[in-house]
């Protein structure tokens, strides 16, 4: 159980506010520094490019909120894309049922990992690590190389399935992302399941004592995470029009970094879905800035991500320590030593 100071109101909201500020600052910097940066198209493009990362991040955020971790995200994305591509290309299945099957498989895989973690008290870290290996190897076993998917439904989906809102063109993947994000936020804040997730992350023994369904909730979070990763894989396949077993390497780390930057505490119980989304956008903006700059190579994205991680984690530490002092003062003032 994390200490009180991590859960008090001040500690909770500040990191997310700061993340929002940093996002705004980065965007402002970009629009000043580069022409064509400050356009709705650029910002929208950011959403579109990172929609599948965002979808994957939704489920992982729930897992982290419950005090766990999921390292299999990237592998499940790759495995899903290969399964869908194989079903469509080699077995003639229509992309829609193929995607549905893949998402169901992803959720089942997640539930299996969650079951092992819950029943046998294995460290989540280890089980999802093994899951990552299993999923990725399985993907390579199905298709050693990337295969293209040719299906009229895909062509239609990527070209025509768009929503036009004024000047904006919202492609399907962004719609799916926004829909999934809205649904996840509702689940996290307005359903018993979501509150149980926060409860487990805040004080698991207490949650058990209160007879809350800890086991079922935990398995549920991993199932949701697996389903989100699979959904992300389906979206990814849709737009790449190919299934690639070597894709999404390191995605889980990006997602974790995004969550931390967005204000999540890795120990659980603190953080929001919105915060993670902001974190994803920040990472995307950095990459965008580097692209615009042109002269820096990809190496600097990694370094920048690392620096941001450091800054945000350091910030959380400072806030927690500050809160601890403030709480001590408040308790003493109210007469309790």
């Amino acid at each position: 159980m994390t200490s009180d100071s991590t859960h008090s109101s001040g500690a909770r909201h500040l990191p997310t506010m700061i993340a929002l500020t940093i996002l705004a600052a980065l965007l402002t910097f970009g629009s000043i520094r580069f022409d064509h940066f400050a356009s709705v198209g650029t910002f929208a493009g950011l959403f579109h490019e990172y929609s599948f990362v965002g979808i994957a991040a939704l489920g992982t955020t729930l897992v982290i909120l419950s005090g766990g971790i999921d390292l299999s995200v990237g592998a499940v994305v790759a495995c899903t894309s290969v399964i869908i591509a194989s079903l469509v290309e080699r077995h003639g299945v229509h992309p829609l049922p193929a995607s549905a099957i893949a998402v169901a498989l992803g959720a089942g895989f997640g539930a299996a990992m969650g079951g092992l973690i819950e029943r046998y008290r294995l460290p989540a870290f280890l089980v999802t690590l093994a899951g990552m290996f299993v999923a990725r190897s399985f993907a390579f076993w199905i298709e050693p190389h990337s295969i293209s998917v040719h299906h009229p439904a895909y062509a239609w989906a990527s070209m025509s399935a768009v929503l036009r809102v004024g000047e904006l063109t919202i492609p399907l993947r962004t719609m799916i992302f926004l829909g999934a994000a809205a649904l996840t936020m509702v689940i996290a804040h307005a359903t018993p399941f979501g509150r149980y997730v926060y409860a487990i992350g805040g004080n698991e023994t207490g949650a058990r004592r209160m007879s809350l369904p800890v086991g079922a909730t935990r398995i549920g979070t991993y199932a949701l995470a697996g389903g989100c990763s699979a959904l992300a894989g389906a979206v990814f396949t849709l737009y790449k029009q190919a299934g690639d077993p070597a894709s999404a390497v390191g995605l889980e780390l990006e997602v974790i970094a995004a969550a931390v930057i967005g204000g999540i505490l890795l120990s659980g119980g603190v953080g929001t879905i919105a915060g993670t989304i902001i974190g994803v956008l920040i990472l995307g903006t950095i990459r965008l800035l580097i692209d615009f700059q042109g002269t820096f190579n990809a190496a600097w994205t990694s370094i920048a991500t690392g620096v941001l991680l450091l800054l945000f984690v350091g910030l959380q530490e400072i806030i927690v320590r500050f809160e601890r002092l403030r709480a001590r003062a408040a308790r003493a003032a109210s007469g309790r030593g």
Binding site: M1, D4, T6, H7, R12, R195, Y198, A199, G201, G202, N203, T205, G206, A207, R209, M210, G269, V270
Partner: peptide
């Protein structure tokens, strides 16, 4: 219980 096991973040 003695430790008042409740949920501090809720």
């Amino acid at each position: 219980h003695q430790e008042i096991d409740l949920l501090p973040n809720l």
